[in-house]
Amino acid sequence: MTTDSLTERVVLRRRKVWSYTAMSALAVIFLFPLVFMVVSSLKPDSQILADIGSPQAFLPVGDISLDNYFGVFDRVPFGRFLFNSVLITVLTVGFGLIVNSMAGFALSRMRWRGRSLVLSLVIATLIVPFETVAVPMVYWVSKLPTLVMEGGMVKYDFGWLNSYHVQIVPFIANAFAIFLFTQYFSTIPKSLDEAARIDGANWFTIYRRIVAPLAGPAFATVAILTFLPAWNQYLWPLMVVQQESLRPVMVGMQYFFQLNTAWGEVMAYTSLITLPILIVFLSFQRAFVSSVAASGVKG
């Protein structure tokens, strides 16, 4: 008995040591490109290139300054781009949560004609990479109707280019999000709906007051997973937004690739646009990691 528990303790400790070693080694691999990015953002271009093959690339040594950051603010209207990205991301995620969760609710808990057809359509659209439809999309959104204010009058016009909504609306409905909500909602007992129906609640009320409050983890997961692509939008705004005042942060990257790339400023800029996500993620990571776990994302 004592020897048994002794060997068990030895085994456990050995496994612990092994786990920590493995995780630490992996942690280095997962972190070092980002350390390189932040450290390089503090160095002048010539030193970045000179340090590139040595351990110094990871160390803030030599000619360290914030010059690259000042250079970024000189070259790019950073505040404006940041505001645009925050606005676009918040609206895309916010509307997306409502629209996709409603769809997931109807697909998982209600019976109506065409339900399985819509579900197959949603799953089929999962496989379409955006790049392959980008060109027809530009043409298509340029023909969509829009409202304009002209001299105090609201008028119709055509063309969605050059606006915030062209960067938001096409990305609200998200097949992946609908799919996750459908999965999660179907794990909540249907007897709750039935009880509510007997009490005279309509379907929207059931969604709003009963099912949605029980689905916190699913909402959190979808929020983070739709936040990332919205923040990282790149190809699409390049194609459809011409006014500088409407551009998001990722497009700003292009400002540094002149005839000679200003690498230090690229590193400073990428640090600046990566940091907000990291902060958001780090502050919500506990909720997020546990919510993904709790949402039981699976097929």
């Binding site: 060109v135 530009v138 043409y139 340029s142 011409q242 006014q243 500088e244 690739f257």
Partner: peptide, 21 residues
């Protein structure tokens, strides 16, 4: 005037032309 980054400029022109803009 409106300024575009060089790497994205031709794409913007082509998209704008497709949209007659």
């Amino acid at each position: 005037t409106e300024a575009f980054p060089q790497g994205a400029y031709n794409d913007a022109i082509v998209a704008a032309a497709a949209a007659n803009d």
